[in-house]
Design a protein around this nucleic acid. Structure first.
Lengths: 186, 186
DNA sequence: GATTTTTTTTGATCCATGTCAAAAAAAGAT
DNA sequence: ATCTTTTTTTGACATGGATCAAAAAAAATC
């Protein structure tokens, strides 16, 4: 739990009370490799934080798995569309390694919104993520495969080091054969 | 101003007081075709609503204009990264047609956060936009040029009808020659 | 540590999209 | 209405990345 507190402390100063509320309302989980944290068709009422390990978000398209992102230590993740639209998820979230997560449910997040520092943090986080996705989309669309790879190396080095070739290729929207060739003559 | 109120009313019920606050704090502007609403290097402390007309967001990359999105009537726009990071904008926002906008400055948005319905609306809007971008990114990355075009026709028909070929091609990350050919044999 | 399964690499070929150049069409200016 | 500028279309050719198949390497299992 300390790890989440440290992370939030980078953005806002949490006092005793805020920390105790957080400890009361955040839930820790332990997952094996390849376990499903969220399956398609489920509702998604949680936002998770990766304490250790790595998780992959993907969906099925014409029977094939399309990986959209991989989250490593100290990142938050959820099915953005299912969480915010309160709809059934078409995204699947699965661990890639043995993983420890900390999660806040929607209910608890409402309770936490009585703690001003948490609200501030949530707003900052939201803005960051929003701006981040906006940025990535823009950049990505204009890049060829090699440029995309270099960009990912810069913004997500852990993912590039640890994730399977096929997953990374899927995120980039190219085949794994092409990614293999790019890596060879980089 | 009524148009903005109507729009917000689709999501939350605004009472007399909320409406009067909004009218006091929202600013209307009129722009000619091709005017710059936001230039590169400026700070961006506003969120705009398109009352009529059309605006284009783009940035420069190797001296070339890369269009990232075009907003039509009843859409909100801002430089997401500059607004949320409070940084200098690398995005440029320009009108494509004579355009009427309504904007809320950051200061006024803080004042408006005393009106609970507005806060609710802001949160909903934020979630929508976030989920929307997330969705688009995912979809787009896996599509070929023709599929992207069909997708845009579905989610942004006005833009496809009214915007210049070159702008749309840029959003799609393809050349305008290719888009011209796609349109021909669609 | 040998065997099976999964993942990555390599090769050959094909196709979608890019590039460059020029013509045609449309929009804007006088 | 005519002329000029901008935008869109068309053609010829080049190329990045896809596809299919198979080999090599790495990881998991017994």
């Amino acid at each position: 739990m300390q790890q989440l507190i440290d992370y939030i402390n980078q953005y806002v100063r949490l006092n005793e009370e805020a920390i105790s509320e957080l400890c009361k309302l955040a839930e820790q989980d332990l997952w094996n490799k390849n376990e499903f944290i969220l399956e398609a068709g489920q509702r998604c009422n949680k936002i998770w934080f990766v304490k250790s390990g790595m998780v992959r978000k993907f969906h099925l398209f014409n029977g094939k798995e399309i990986t959209t992102w991989i989250h490593c230590e100290n990142e938050f993740f959820t099915s953005v569309s299912a969480y915010f639209h309160k709809s059934l998820s078409n995204e699947i979230i699965q661990t890639c390694e043995p993983t420890e997560t900390i999660c806040i449910t929607r209910e608890n997040s409402i309770l936490l919104s009585k703690v001003p520092q948490i609200v501030t943090f949530t707003n900052i986080l939201m803005g960051e993520q929003f701006a981040g996705i906006d940025q990535n989309t823009k950049e990505f669309n204009m890049m060829n495969a090699r440029e995309k790879y270099k960009y990912l190396q810069k913004i997500a080095p852990e993912m590039i080091k640890r994730a399977k070739l096929g997953y990374i290729a899927s995120i980039m929207g190219i085949t794994q054969e092409t990614l293999s060739r790019i890596r060879k003559r980089l």
